[in-house]
Each structure stands twice: as structure tokens, then as C-alpha cells.
Design a binder for these strands. Structure first.
Length: 950
RNA sequence: GCCGUCGUGGCGGAAUUGGCAGACGCACAUGACUCAAAAUCAUGCGGGAAACCAUGUGGGUUCGAGUCCCACCGACGGCACCA
């Protein structure tokens, strides 16, 4: 009799639904476990095969936790506000509420057909006024605590959707959803002050168990940097230009300043600027560039010098010019920078293009690990120069190859008193090589710093090594001393072999700098040079010393900056939560009284956004009219709505007490269920949803609403499922798999088992129709096992070890989300049972219990067929005996020189000497070592025996 | 450029964390059953005649390296003029 999955799965799904089998209990004395998956957006396409990967994984964990005695909350709901329903409405004139209702209905059927153990009694829907009442309530609390504010500022405006977007919704300068170009537009927007929480959003990651890559991405996104704000005085004016820098140690190398096109300095000193027309023209052009153009056109730097204004570098007291350029962002730091072209790639590029001076103030530090500087010996300094000597006619460079030691280096030597590096370089060249006829000699920004203990002189040495390029005019030579000639050979090396030929690190660096003209930006392993009181100090220390100096002399202050911006919270759209704010001519913006919540979204016919990107609600003149909550005069409602991220920023709290109409959830429920024990979702939500919801949660914690600082104790992430061709599933590629078809053809259990078996849970995996057939075959074999069942209340000796091992393996694999190897364990077990053509009742029961979270329908049915009264989901999770997972007799490999030659059988606790005897008696080993000398024997207990022979 | 992940048979992937590389599945081959096919069951399956060679490449540490270290190459994901 073959397995009729359609009948069986339907039967159990109906029973679970009718009895509410998996509903969480309101008994707060039980140990709890709260598992969460990201609730879906009910799109018209229906469920994607990616959804069940995450849902099945946590379903398995939830089912196991229930069997282990936990009161489990595994809820589901729908994140149903959002653009697709609204765009669909604009096209087809069907109210988004209708579309959403239909889609949700479809989603529910699909979800139920896969047999997830969700608590459907707690289903939430973000578009339900009973739900968004509390979304609005949270907004009002944010407003009351100064975290929501209205600001007119340039926002990202999608030319396609006609809507303002958060930075997070702009990808490569185009709209994340529709792909249209995004431009900047001035608009009055509601903003949320997430930046106030930036530091806590980083710090509190220490207390939670998130995958490292998730933490790293969040920290990266928040983008903390440490540095200083420094004031550069404007020459002849009582005003300073404030800049932000993370490298105050390079301030001696600041040779010009740059301000963003939007910087207010220009407006203020219009009259002083002698080329104001040129500057304003540049400003105008920059303003016209869209985000897309700004990021796309980042190849060539542009800019204009602001003539008539100079600033004073407060450390060098030099007068330096100010430029305007759009490579400086108005929205980060102070919108102005000090440019240090020698040590910043962008400044270097700009300075090179506009011929601005480049001054090296940081040198790489080379450290001889074999001869580190010692304590208590004399410190000596040497100032030397190194020559890059170019052949007059060929692309070759002169190198000295030493005869007495393995040194291959450029010509170098000490700079003598009163000599410039260039003079010294030429003198050294002539002394050591005889060449003197130069065409072109110049120094490059490639000075290095060496520090080591010089054994032959018993002193510590510090060497500053300048770098001079000499282009020879001819190979004419003077005599050189015999001594010099003996010391080394003079070799001409091809340009492309030079770097590898030289074996002195500092000179390799100089060669690299010479050929690949660039900025040197490394803060670590570097030293300040040409920097007055900072000279000789390690860069990371110099950075702090510089800030101390700046603060002492009132030139500026230490400052931390973040890349994270405040959250643009307004959308000029219909299908979202109305923002519960009212504007009155006299009182300004005020929230509506909380008793009036929810502020219900009015039913409308016309969903088109307004001309200027106004919300469709802006046309609802009757709805807009209201009274001021403060003075009672005529006032108007806010017509923008909230972004889709609003409803999902707190939904996990509502699940705890979803029908409460007094609070977003009761204190008791919040206390019992918080925090979410395990939250699984996609990596694509790491920087948006995850950060936003952590922010809201922290705010709710601050105002005493929730009991924990962090909403989620543990966060994991599933890999994407690709199409059969290894590409992302998409309609246009025709590689989309519909879950309904799979469930229809193979059944829910096969679908679940396959999605868990397809590969490591956190990695992407391509869909394979052949492989799911294999999983289906496996379940058929499980079904047919019932004809091999014999009596037995205990594990049979044959299978006892295997059963204990399997309980251990499956239990830990589930906790570690190694579902693929858990399924492999089941398959191996079934193969073993088939080999014996027998399985006893005790083994069969435990096998079904272990498999139940993966294949809940079939295992329930088989368990009942066995004559058990209870449902299998109501039985306790099997336990194992550690001592019974260890084999008494084991086979260990015997190696000779690390190569496996044979294996021997030993008892698990066999003494080393007994094992040794067994090895010695082994014929294979005997013959292999008979005319060799045994140098060493290594026995790792119960693992391996290795003989080292000569 | 920066951050992160990953390179193992024809394919998806295992490997107790430094100890028999290729578990388990797919595909393939052979056999049984069948008039036959499918399904099912059983057996085999990295390369090589063998010694041996094999975990992206080249070094290193170790009695022993897929696993650790260094340098490269390649793929994917995220960020990107953030000073």
C-alpha cells in the first residue's frame, strides 16, 4: 500500500487547525521559547519557495522545543502595507484593501498546506486599524520624546514612484523597487532621530547572539569613525572654517581645503570671493546632478578654487587655498575637509589633477623582527637617501648586488651636514657607481622609516630614508674606488622585474610608490615625519597627540561621527499608516489625542500621487480638515503616510498579546515572552528592518514599555534558493518554482525535507527537481518501514548504538541549524533498517519522533498506525545515554609517516602498549617497516596510530 | 577600494574542529523482479595497471593539513567620494 500524502496531510492539517494544537499557552509559569520568522509581504505572486526555507527551519526548532516541554510561541502575520498593492490599484482600480485581503487569503492557504506549526490565533496584519493604532501610538511617543521631527531637507525622490525614499531604498542611484533614477528634492519630511541611538546600536550587539556577519554589516552601516573637528582661521576675517578629520596626525600635510557645493561659506562671503560667478556656476551644476550621476561620474574629480579667501593651517601657519568640489559631501561631518593629498586617495587625485602641492607627513615604518630595538642602549638616528637611477635609453634601473651577503638594493647613503637629499643622492651615485651625467633629478614622496637594533654597533638605529629619482643623461663614468668596486656588482634591471629583485622592504615600498604614484594611507605601522612635535611618533599615537594639542590650543575638539543618517519617515503615498499629526497656523504641529487613535486611513478612489509628489491623501479635502488638538481652531492633517518599515518595526511585540485594545501588549505578556529567543530572516534585512526595529525597541525600553534592551536574543539567516540554473529566480528567466506545484506533486513533507537537505542552511542553494525526488523516495522508504516492525520495548543490541548516536546527532544538528546532516542521519538509519529488514517498536517510535519536526504529517500517521494513543507531537523528545554512543570496538587507521597504510581493530579503552603490540603484529605494517628505522611512534587514543620511519 | 562569505568527484554537499577525504543524496552502471517499461530491491561508482596522486594556486608550521599561518588566483554578497 503506497503512501497517500494528500489524504494524510489534509487530515492532520485539519486536526491541528480545529484543535489549535500548536497555539501558545497563556500559562506564564512554564518555561517559554519564542521563535520568530519575518512575516511575509502578501504579494500577488503568492508564496515563494524561499519563504518555506526559513519557516521550516524554525518550525523544526519550534516543534522540537515543544516536545522538550517549552511553552512555544511561533507566530505568523502579514506585513501588508506597501507599494505593490498601491501600484496595482493605480493600474487596475482595485482598492489595495481588496487586493491585500485576497493575497492574504491565498498566502494562508499556501502556508497551511505546508504544515507549519504557527499559532494562527495570534495572526497580525499591519493594515488592520486595531494593529496600526499602536504603530501610530509609538510614533506619537517618538514625537513626544523629540525623536520625530519635521525638517525641510533634500530627500531622495524617485522619479518613477514619485515618492521620497530613505537612503536605504536607493541602490546605485536608482530606486530599489522600480529602478527609476533618484533625484534630490527639497521637501518637508518627518524624520526619526535614529542617529541618537547609533552608539547603543553598536554597543549592545555585544549582548546578543547574532551571526558575526550580521553584526559586522550593521556596524559597517552605522559607520562610526573617530577623529576631530578642527577650525581653520579665514585669513583677515573673524571666522573659521570647521572641518572633520579622522587623521588629525596628518594636519601638517594639509595643503588646501575643500568645501561641499552646498556649504554656507559661499553665501556668507560672496563679496570677498573674486571669482564668485565661476563658483556659483559650479554650485549650480552640482545641484543639477542626480544621485545617479554623482555616483556614476566619480571617475574625474571636478572643482573650482575660491579666490579671495584663504585659510591658515593652524599648525604650520601657512596660508592655503580653499576649493569647492562635489567630492566633499554636505551631509557628512561639517561639509568641509582639510585636504592631505599625500595621505588620502581622493585628495591625491584632486591635487594631481589641479596641480596642488603634495606634502608627505607620514612614513611607513619598517621593523626588523629579528632585531627589535632594545631597552637601555643608545638610540641613534641616521638620515639617508636612496636613489632610483634610470637608464638613459632603456627602461632599466640600477641595482647593487652585494658580493659578501644576500643584499640586492638601490644605491643609498647618508646625507651629510648641509647637503640636500638631492645633492647627497647624486654624490652617492657617483661614489658607488661612477655615473654622474644626469638629465633630471627629483625627490618623491616616498620617505620611509626603519627601526632596529644594530648589533655591530650595539645601538638602536632609526633611519629616515628619503627617495630621489635620477634619470641619467648618459652612461659616462668616473673612476670608483677599488673598495667600492669589490663590494658589489652594478646591475641594470628591467622595470617590471625591479620590485621583485630588490630584497629590502623599505626600498620595495619606494619603488612601488615611484611606479604607482599614489597616496599612502596606512595608519598602522606608520610614523609621523615633517610634523614638528609629532615627528617620529607612531601614527596612531600621533593622532591622539594631535587632538590633545588641538584641544589645548582651542583649535577644535575630539569628535565621533557616524555614517548613519536620520530616518526619513514620510511617504507621499496612500497605502500606509496615516501619520497622526495635525498642523495649526498658531500651534504648529501636534499629535492627535491618543484616545482618537487609530486614525483610520480613509477609503478613496483616486490613488495617483499628486503633481509634486504629494500624497493621494492630499486630495481628500474633507478628511484633511480637522480641529487643532491644542486650541481647537481649524487645522489640517498630515497627508503623508508611514513607510513600510513602520509596521514591521514592532510586530513581534504584538504577537505576545495580539488582541489587547488597551496597550500594545500587556506588561505581563511582554515580561514573559521577551525577548524573542530566535529570529531567522534574510540578510537583505540586516541594515534596514533589523536596525529600525532595534531602534524602536530601544526607545520603547527607554520609556518603560518593554522590559529588554534588545528585541532579539539570537539572529540567524538563511541562504537564498536559486533556480535550477544557479541564477536568482525570476519570471523573466523562467526559472521560478511554485511551492503549490511541489506540494501537489510530492507532498508537504517531501518539500520540507528537501528544503532542509538541499545544502547548508545559511548558504545559497540551487533548486533541483531530481534531488526532491530523492527526498520523496526516502519518505516512501520510511512509510514502507512499517511492514518490517517487530515487537520490542527496548532498542535491540544491533541498533542500540546507532539509536543513541542518532538522538544525539539530530538533537544537536537542529540546534546548530545543520538540518542537511540531520536528514542524512535519517537516511543512513533507514538504510540500516532495510539491511536487516527489521526494526523493533522501540526503535521505530524514536525514529518517528526524531523525524517528526521535519516530516510532521507522515510521522503522526505512522505513529497512530502503530497503535499509539497520543499524537506524536505531544510526546517528549527522545533522550540518549552518552555512554551508549561510544563503540566498544573501534577500527583505527595506522599511518607510516602520516600516510594511512592499514587499519586495526582495538577496544575503546585499550592501553597504548596493547595497541602498539597489535600494530607491530600487523602483517602489512611488519613488511613496510622491516628495513627501516622507527624514529617515533604516536598514538592518539582511540583515533590514530602513526609510525615515523627513516 | 573597504567589509564579509566561499572554492572538495559529473552534480548538491559530508568530514566529531588538526587524525581513514568524498558521509548522505542525485546522476550513472550492473544485477533481481517483469513479456517489456516504470516503480521497487540489491551491488558498484574521484583518478591511476600499480606504486601512488588528489580538497583553487604556490609556500610554511606539524608525526600528520580540506581544516592552522603567509602570499596569490577566482566566485558570490554588502558598502562605496562617509575625509
Amino acid at each position: 500500500m503506497s503512501y497517500d500524502f494528500k489524504k494524510v496531510e489534509k487530515k492532520w492539517q485539519e486536526k491541528w487547525e480545529k484543535e489549535g494544537t500548536f497555539n501558545a499557552k497563556d500559562d506564564y509559569t512554564l518555561p517559554k521559547w519564542y521563535g520568530l520568522i519575518e512575516f511575509p509581504y502578501p504579494s500577488g505572486q503568492g508564496l515563494h519557495v524561499g519563504h518555506p526555507r526559513s519557516y521550516t527551519a524554525l518550525d523544526i526548532i519550534a516543534r522540537k522545543k515543544r516536545m522538550q516541554g517549552y511553552n512555544v510561541l511561533y507566530p505568523i502575520g502579514f506585513d501588508a502595507f506597501g507599494l505593490p498593492a498601491e501600484n496595482y490599484a493605480i493600474k487596475n482600480h482595485i482598492h489595495p484593501r481588496i487586493t491585500t485581503e485576497n493575497n492574504i487569503k491565498h498566502f494562508k492557504e499556501q502556508l497551511k498546506s505546508i504544515g507549519f506549526s504557527f499559532d494562527w490565533s495570534r495572526e497580525v496584519n499591519t493594515t488592520d486599524p486595531k494593529y496600526y493604532k499602536w504603530t501610530q501610538w509609538i510614533f506619537i511617543q517618538l514625537y513626544k520624546h523629540g525623536l520625530a521631527y519635521k525638517a525641510t531637507m533634500p530627500i531622495n525622490f524617485c522619479t518613477g514612484c514619485k515618492v521620497g525614499l530613505a537612503n536605504e531604498e536607493v541602490v546605485n542611484g536608482v530606486c530599489e523597487r522600480c529602478g527609476s533614477p533618484v533625484v534630490q528634492k527639497e521637501k518637508s519630511q518627518w524624520m526619526l532621530r535614529i542617529t541618537k541611538y547609533a552608539q547603543r546600536l553598536i554597543d549592545d550587539l555585544d549582548d546578543v547572539d547574532f551571526l558575526d556577519k550580521i553584526k559586522a554589516q550593521q556596524i559597517n552601516w552605522i559607520g562610526r569613525s573617530e577623529g576631530a573637528e578642527v577650525n581653520f582661521k579665514l585669513e583677515g576675517l573673524d571666522e573659521s572654517l570647521k572641518v572633520y578629520t579622522t587623521r588629525p596626525d596628518t594636519i601638517f600635510g594639509a595643503t588646501y581645503m575643500v568645501i561641499a557645493p552646498e556649504h554656507k561659506l559661499i553665501e556668507k562671503y560672496k563679496d570677498k570671493i573674486t571669482n564668485i560667478d565661476e563658483v556659483e556656476d559650479y554650485k549650480k551644476k552640482a545641484a543639477l546632478k542626480s544621485d545617479f550621476e554623482r555616483s556614476e561620474l566619480n571617475k574625474e574629480k571636478t572643482g573650482v578654487e575660491i579666490r579671495g579667501i584663504k585659510v591658515i593651517n593652524p599648525l604650520t601657519n601657512e596660508k592655503i587655498p580653499v576649493w569647492i568640489s562635489d567630492y566633499v559631501l554636505s551631509t557628512y561631518g561639517t561639509g568641509a575637509i582639510m585636504a592631505v593629498p599625500a595621505h588620502d586617495d581622493r585628495d591625491f587625485e584632486f591635487a594631481t589633477k589641479f596641480n596642488l602641492p603634495i606634502k608627505q607627513v607620514v612614513a611607513p615604518k619598517f621593523f626588523d623582527e629579528k632585531n627589535p630595538p632594545r631597552e637601555g642602549v643608545e638610540n641613534t638616528k641616521r638620515h639617508v637617501v636612496c636613489d632610483i637611477i634610470k637608464h638613459p635609453t632603456e627602461d632599466k634601473y640600477l641595482v647593487l648586488s652585494h658580493n659578501d651577503r644576500n643584499w640586492k638594493n638601490l644605491v643609498m647613503g647618508g646625507i651629510e651636514k648641509g647637503e640636500t637629499p638631492i645633492e647627497a643622492a647624486v654624490r652617492e651615485m657617483t661614489e658607488e657607481t661612477g655615473y654622474y651625467d644626469t638629465k633630471n633629478v627629483y625627490q618623491i614622496n616616498a620617505t620611509t622609516f626603519d627601526e632596529f637594533y644594530a648589533d655591530h654597533k650595539k645601538v638602536n638605529r632609526k633611519i629616515i630614508q628619503e627617495c630621489v629619482v635620477i634619470e641619467l643623461n648618459s652612461l659616462d663614468k668616473k673612476e670608483i674606488s677599488e673598495e667600492e668596486a669589490k663590494l658589489s656588482e652594478r646591475v641594470w634591471i628591467d622595470k617590471d622585474k625591479l620590485y621583485d629583485y630588490i630584497n629590502i622592504e623599505s626600498q620595495k615600498f619606494q619603488i612601488d610608490m615611484y611606479f604607482n604614484n599614489k597616496a599612502y594611507c596606512d595608519l598602522n605601522n606608520s610614523v609621523s615625519i615633517n610634523s614638528d612635535f609629532l615627528t617620529g611618533i607612531d601614527s596612531s599615537d600621533a593622532k591622539n597627540k594631535a587632538i590633545d594639542y588641538i584641544e589645548e590650543h582651542k583649535l577644535g575638539e575630539r569628535k565621533v561621527n557616524y555614517k548613519l543618517r536620520d530616518w526619513v519617515f514620510s511617504r507621499q503615498r496612500y497605502w500606509g499608516e496615516p501619520i497622526p499629526m495635525v498642523y495649526c497656523e498658531d500651534c504648529g504641529w501636534n499629535p492627535i489625542p491618543e484616545e482618537e487613535l487609530p486614525l483610520v486611513l480613509p477609503d478613496i478612489e483616486d490613488y495617483e500621487p499628486g503633481e509634486n509628489g504629494e500624497s493621494p491623501l492630499a486630495k481628500q479635502t474633507e478628511w484633511i480638515k480637522t480641529k487643532c488638538p491644542c486650541c481647537g481652531k481649524d487645522a489640517r492633517r498630515e497627508t503623508d503616510t508611514m513607510p513600510q518599515w513602520a509596521g514591521s518595526s514592532w510586530y513581534f511585540l504584538r504577537y505576545m498579546d495580539p488582541h489587547n485594545d488597551k496597550e500594545l501588549a500587556s506588561k505581563e505578556a511582554l515580561k514573559y515572552w521577551s525577548p524573542v529567543d530566535w529570529y531567522n530572516g534574510g540578510m537583505e534585512h540586516t541594515t534596514l528592518h533589523l536596525l529600525y526595529s532595534r531602534f524602536w525597541h530601544k526607545f520603547l525600553y527607554d520609556i518603560g514599555v518593554v522590559p529588554t534592551k534588545e528585541p532579539y536574543q539570537k539572529r540567524t539567516s538563511h541562504g537564498m534558493i536559486l533556480g535550477g540554473n544557479g541564477e536568482k529566480m525570476s519570471k523573466s528567466k523562467g526559472n521560478v518554482i511554485n511551492p503549490d506545484d511541489i506540494v501537489d506533486e510530492f507532498g508537504a513533507d517531501s518539500f520540507r525535507v528537501y528544503e532542509m537537505f538541499m545544502g547548508p542552511f545559511d548558504q545559497t542553494a540551487p533548486w533541483s527537481m531530481e534531488s526532491i525526488r530523492g527526498c520523496s523516495k526516502f519518505l516512501d522508504r520510511v512509510w514502507n518501514l512499517k511492514d518490517m516492525v517487530v515487537d520490542g520495548d527496548e532498542f535491540s543490541p544491533k541498533f542500540e548504538k546507532m539509536m543513541h548516536k542518532a538522538i544525539k546527532k539530530v538533537s544537536s544538528d537542529i540546534e546548530e541549524m545543520k538540518f542537511n546532516t540531520a536528514v542524512a542521519t535519517f537516511m543512513t538509519m533507514v538504510n540500516e533498517f532495510y539491511k536487516e529488514k527489521q526494526i523493533n517498536k522501540a526503535e521505530y517510535k524514536v525514529f518517528l519522533q526524531l523525524l517528526n519536526p521535519f516530516a510532521p504529517h507522515m510521522t503522526e500517521e505512522l505513529f497512530k498506525e502503530l497503535g499509539e494513543e497520543k499524537d506524536i507531537s505531544q510526546t517528549p523528545w527522545p533522550t540518549y545515554d552518552e555512554s551508549k554512543t561510544i563503540d566498544d570496538e573501534i577500527e583505527i587507521p595506522v599511518q607510516i609517516n602520516g600516510k594511512v597504510k592499514t587499519t586495526i581493530k582495538i577496544l575503546k579503552d585499550e592501553e597504548e602498549c596493547v595497541v602498539k603490540d597489535k600494530v607491530r603484529e600487523n602483517e602489512t605494517i611488519k613488511s613496510l617497516i622491516k628495513d627501516k628505522i622507527v624514529v617515533k611512534e604516536i598514538y592518539v587514543k582511540g583515533k590514530i596510530f602513526n609510525i615515523v620511519v627513516k
